[in-house]
């Protein structure tokens, strides 16, 4: 995806030079490197510990979970928690709902955000500043405070307990950040490339779609990851708006593992692991585009 000679290629090239230069000049091999590496591993270990705890708990049998002396490894090892979690009613329905909601939302969001990103990155127009301020400002409103108004809005539109309503809300919530990130990304691509194409006879629009659009690919990916995580993990709106179990999302399904006598830790951790998997998979597949993506957006503002 990163074509040499393009903005992305240049960027990646620079990145390599930076690291190599750093490696060449800064680091006398040996002790210093060892200290850096050890610190890095330490950071990873601290960050990962809660996740590790979640995963090993998912593999522990019930009685080994709440013990006064925690067990560091799942021995004995069991898949019962996963079986239990998957066997809960509506698991597959809720997986499907989450996928539909996030999938449709992302597809729409990418198109809409991309258009707005181009509009604000490539054109100066009256109201642009206001638009930019709006997309930052909109993020300041706490979603929890909007529960009742949003419910009323969707209720009057007959979209309570229906996926389209939730999709619309997620779209509006995720769009501002996506526009912002993509905008920086588009701005990063030299406008000269487009102008060259226009000299060769392309219209502005076709120049844009032939030259700029392909270069924004990694940016779209990075933005998509952010949107995916936000929507996939959202809870309160889905909980309030989707009341029938076959319409719910995975995060709401997860909440059903907490009963009035506390969470069922084993199945909950197994379910949480399952819920997290698609995000991690999506992320890992696309991670290589991240470095270019998120930041190019941010660097340009």
């Amino acid at each position: 995806m990163i074509a040499p000679g393009t903005a992305q290629g240049v960027q990646a090239g620079r990145a390599r030079t930076a690291t190599e230069a750093a490696a060449r000049v800064m680091v006398p091999r040996g002790l210093k490197q060892l200290v850096y590496d050890a610190t890095g591993i330490g950071v990873a270990a601290v960050m990962l510990f809660p996740i590790y705890w979640m995963i090993i708990t998912a593999f522990k049998p019930g009685r080994d979970i709440l013990t006064l002396q925690p067990k560091w490894f799942p021995a004995p090892f069991t898949l019962d928690n996963f079986k239990d979690a998957i066997a809960r009613p509506f698991f597959l329905d809720d997986v499907r709902n989450s996928l539909v909601i996030v999938g449709v939302m992302l597809a729409l969001a990418l198109v809409i955000a991309f258009l707005a990103a181009v509009g604000t990155a490539r054109f100066g127009f009256r109201g642009r500043t206001a638009f930019l301020v709006m997309i930052i400002g909109v993020q300041m409103v706490p979603l929890n405070a909007l529960i009742i108004p949003l419910y009323m809005l969707l209720d009057s539109a007959g979209q309570v307990d229906a996926l389209p309503g939730v999709i619309a809300i997620y779209l509006a919530v995720v769009l501002p950040f996506m526009i912002w990130t993509l905008r920086g990304f588009v701005a990063n691509i030299p406008v000269e490339l487009e102008e060259a194409a226009m000299i060769d006879g392309c219209t502005r629009t076709s120049a844009f779609f032939r030259i700029t659009f392909p270069l924004v690919g990694p940016g779209l990916v990075a933005t998509a990851i952010f949107g995916f995580i936000q929507a996939w993990n959202e809870y309160i709106i889905a909980y309030v708006l989707l009341s029938s179990p076959h319409n719910q999302t995975l995060t709401v399904w997860l909440a059903s593992f907490t009963t009035n006598h506390g969470p069922e830790w084993g199945p909950l951790m197994a379910a949480a692991t399952l819920t997290g998997l698609p995000v991690v998979a999506f992320f890992l597949i696309l991670q290589r585009y991240l470095a270019g993506g998120l930041t190019a957006g941010a660097v340009k503002g």
């Binding site: 209720d155 309570v160 909980y239």
Partner: peptide, 9 residues
Amino acid sequence: TKLDTALPG
């Protein structure tokens, strides 16, 4: 929270 939103709907 859920009752507060759903019952007036």
